[in-house]
C-alpha cells in the first residue's frame, strides 16, 4: 500500500504545504481509495530532502511533489483517471507543463510564504498557532520561528520586505540586519523612508510616537501586500495566456489547460489558490482581490477544488505511529542514528 506523508493533523492537510495537498489530490484522482493512505505525520525527517510530501511505495521513497508526479505519470492507472498525464502528450505540451510547474514552485510559493508568515495578522493569529497541533511538547516551540525566518528571507526575493533585493541578487539576501551602532543608526541614515528616531519628551509624546510608528508599519505592510497582489496577478496571467495559447480561447475564459482533465501543474496551482484564499485566514486580502480581478479563473478553480476535496474526503487518513511521530525521543534517535526512515 502507498503511504503519503504530509503536513497536517486529524485527517486534514495543512495550508502551510500546498504541495502536500496537491499530492493527496493527485493520488485520490489516480488510485482506488484502498490502494493508498495519507499519514499526517508532519515529520520532515522521513524525507530524504528534508521536505514533505513523501510517498513511500513498496520498493522506494519519492521525495517532493515533482518526484511523486513522475511516479504517477508512469503508472498504469494514470491514463484511465480524471488526471492529465504528461506521459502520452506531445513534447510541446510536456515542455509548457514543466515551465508552468517551475513557475508555481519557485514564484507562487513565495507569495504563499508571504501570506502565511510575513503578513503579521495571518502569522500571529493563524499560522503560528498551527504548529502546536502538529508537534508534541516541546517540539512546537522552535519550528514556527524557523519557518517564519526562512519565509521572511525568501519573500525578500520578490521585493516583499523592507530591505529590497531582487530575485537574482546573490549576496545581500544573506546579510543579517546590521545592529545599530554609534556610526550606523537610523538617525544617520540618509534613506528618506527611514523613520527618524525621536526622544520622547513626555509620556504623551511617547504615546504619539508609538502610534506614529504603528501607522508607518501598517502602511509598509499595505505596500507589500499590494506588491504581492501585483505579482500574483502577473503569475496568474501566465496561466491565462497559456490557456489562450493552447485552447484558442479568449482571455476572459478559463478552463483545463491540456484537454479535459487537470494536469499536475494545475493541481498545484489550485492547491496554492486554496491556501492563499482560505477562509481560515484572518486577513483575506488575496481572496478579495482574486474574486474581483480573476472572476473566471477563481470560479473555475473553486469548482475544481470542491470536487477534489470531495474525492479526498473518501480517502483513508491516519495519524503517525511509532517512529513516524515528530517527538523529541524520535528526533534524538534520528540524530544518533538509532532511528532510520
Amino acid at each position: 500500500m502507498l503511504q503519503l506523508h504530509v503536513w497536517g493533523v486529524d485527517g486534514e492537510i495543512s495550508l502551510i504545504s500546498p504541495e502536500c495537498l496537491a499530492s493527496a489530490w493527485l493520488l485520490s484522482l489516480v488510485f482506488p481509495k484502498n490502494d493508498f493512505e495519507i499519514v499526517t505525520s508532519s515529520n520532515t525527517n522521513i524525507s530524504d530532502i528534508n521536505k514533505l510530501p513523501v510517498l513511500i511505495t513498496d520498493d522506494k521513497k519519492l521525495n517532493g511533489f515533482s518526484e511523486i508526479v513522475d511516479f504517477i505519470d508512469g503508472n498504469k492507472f494514470a491514463n484511465e483517471s480524471g488526471y492529465w498525464s504528461s506521459r502520452a502528450s506531445s513534447p510541446r505540451e510536456k515542455l509548457i507543463h514543466s515551465c508552468l510547474l517551475n513557475l508555481v514552485e519557485t514564484r507562487v510559493d513565495v507569495i504563499n510564504q508571504y501570506n502565511l508568515y510575513s503578513n503579521t495578522k495571518n502569522y500571529e493569529k493563524y499560522t503560528r498557532k498551527l504548529f502546536q497541533n502538529y508537534f508534541p511538547f516541546p517540539m512546537m516551540y522552535n519550528q514556527p520561528l524557523k519557518f517564519h525566518n526562512n519565509a521572511v528571507a525568501q519573500v525578500k526575493l520578490l521585493g516583499l520586505s523592507k530591505n529590497k533585493t531582487s530575485f537574482f541578487d546573490f549576496t545581500t539576501t544573506f546579510q543579517e540586519e546590521v545592529a545599530e551602532t554609534e556610526y550606523f543608526n537610523s538617525e544617520l541614515s540618509d534613506d528618506e523612508d527611514e523613520e527618524e528616531k525621536e526622544v520622547a519628551l513626555s509620556s504623551l509624546h511617547e504615546k504619539q510616537l508609538i502610534a506614529k510608528s504603528k501607522t508607518k508599519a501598517a502602511l509598509l505592510e499595505s505596500k507589500n501586500s499590494l506588491r504581492c497582489l501585483v505579482l500574483l496577478n502577473h503569475y496568474l496571467q501566465e496561466f491565462i495566456k497559456t490557456f489562450k495559447l493552447l485552447q484558442n480561447e479568449n482571455e476572459n475564459a478559463f478552463g483545463y489547460l491540456f484537454g479535459g482533465s487537470p494536469s499536475a501543474c494545475e493541481l498545484l496551482l489550485y492547491a496554492y489558490l486554496h491556501s492563499l484564499s482560505s477562509e481560515k485566514l484572518p486577513d483575506r486580502f488575496v481572496s478579495s482581490y482574486l474574486d474581483l480581478k480573476h472572476e473566471k479563473l477563481v470560479s473555475f478553480s473553486k469548482e475544481q477544488i470542491n470536487n477534489l476535496q470531495k474525492s479526498l474526503s473518501n480517502s483513508s487518513f491516519r495519524p503517525p505511529q511509532g517512529a513516524e511521530i515528530p517527538s523529541l525521543f524520535n528526533e534524538v534517535g534520528y540524530l544518533l542514528g538509532s532511528i532510520k526512515y
Partner: peptide, 14 residues
C-alpha cells in the same frame, strides 16, 4: 548563494 539557491532551499542546508 548564487541564483539565491540556498535561500530558496534552506531545508537542504541543515
Amino acid at each position: 548563494n548564487w541564483n539565491s539557491f540556498k535561500l530558496r532551499h534552506p531545508t537542504l542546508f541543515e
